[in-house]
């Protein structure tokens, strides 16, 4: 009998992650580690991880990493990639990090077409700080700062940041996927692989938004979180390729 699922080299084995049971981060982490190995990028990769649940990601990935100030990941990545274009640079950010405090950095790094890849984990809440509303919280969704459910009159509408930047000429590839079951997980890997390849081929900026379960703050079981993504969240944040300008098409 031989092992059918090889341990991803760029993922530390003797560490239990701090993520909650059923958290999407763990799944996306494994996907990224597998891709870094399969695409042979680990040796020259630098990941900028966010302030948020994934603030400790450097304990799990076995590649060079730097933890950014909250929201500034794409600015860090711009600095790194500009002075060391030979490095493979990607950010790993949450919805608060990327589309609240980091909105300007997100929009302008995309608009400049920085040769970086952005992995955007959208779990509709602020996880690390205990489940507050995020820019991507759905209408009516209860969070610790929208106890009566998100009300647009006071809390505004779910922000579609990836859709906003997808048409920018600098954005070569933008896709949204969902961690809502085996099929969605495989699509997530495919999407991130495509986005990584955009950077490897020197085409420019790529981003993958990943709808990701947060069972603890959604107050659901992990399995129900998958269902909620499929039945509710994915209706607001529809998965699919938002822009693919690899062939030069719009």
């Amino acid at each position: 009998m031989k092992l059918l699922n090889k341990w991803p080299v760029y993922y530390k084995k003797d560490v239990v992650t701090h993520y909650c049971p059923g958290c999407g981060h763990g799944i996306v982490h494994r996907i990224v580690a597998e891709l870094l190995e399969e695409m042979d990028l680990g040796k020259r990769a630098v990941c900028v991880n966010p302030a948020g649940c994934a603030v400790l990601a450097y304990k799990y990935f076995d590649i060079d990493m730097i933890e950014s100030a909250h929201g500034r990941g794409t600015a860090f990545a711009t600095g790194i990639k500009r002075v060391r274009p030979d490095l493979f640079v990607f950010t790993y950010q949450g919805d608060g990090d990327l589309s609240a405090i980091g909105t300007a950095e997100t929009i302008h790094s995309a608009n400049r077409g920085e040769h970086i890849t952005v992995i955007f984990i959208n779990n509709a809440v602020y996880g690390m700080t205990g489940g507050q509303m995020a820019p991507t919280t759905l209408l009516g969704q209860k969070t610790t700062t929208t106890p009566g459910g998100r009300n647009p009159k006071f809390d505004g509408y779910p922000l579609h940041i990836t859709d906003m930047i997808a048409p920018l000429p600098g954005v070569i590839y933008a896709e949204r996927v969902a961690i809502n079951g085996p099929a969605g997980i495989q699509k997530t890997k495919k999407a991130i692989q495509t986005a990584f390849q955009v950077q490897v081929d020197g085409l420019g900026y790529s981003i993958v938004e990943v709808l990701s379960p947060c069972p603890t703050n959604w107050k659901m079981t992990p399995a129900d979180s998958f269902k909620w993504i499929t039945e509710v969240m994915a209706k607001e944040y529809v998965p699919g390729v938002l822009s693919d300008k690899r062939g030069g098409a719009a």
Partner: peptide
Amino acid sequence: TGCKLCVLVCPEVAIEVYGE
């Protein structure tokens, strides 16, 4: 059957599947 769906959905990389 060694389909590895369990490995796919596991957030902790805590499952090993052995087979031919």
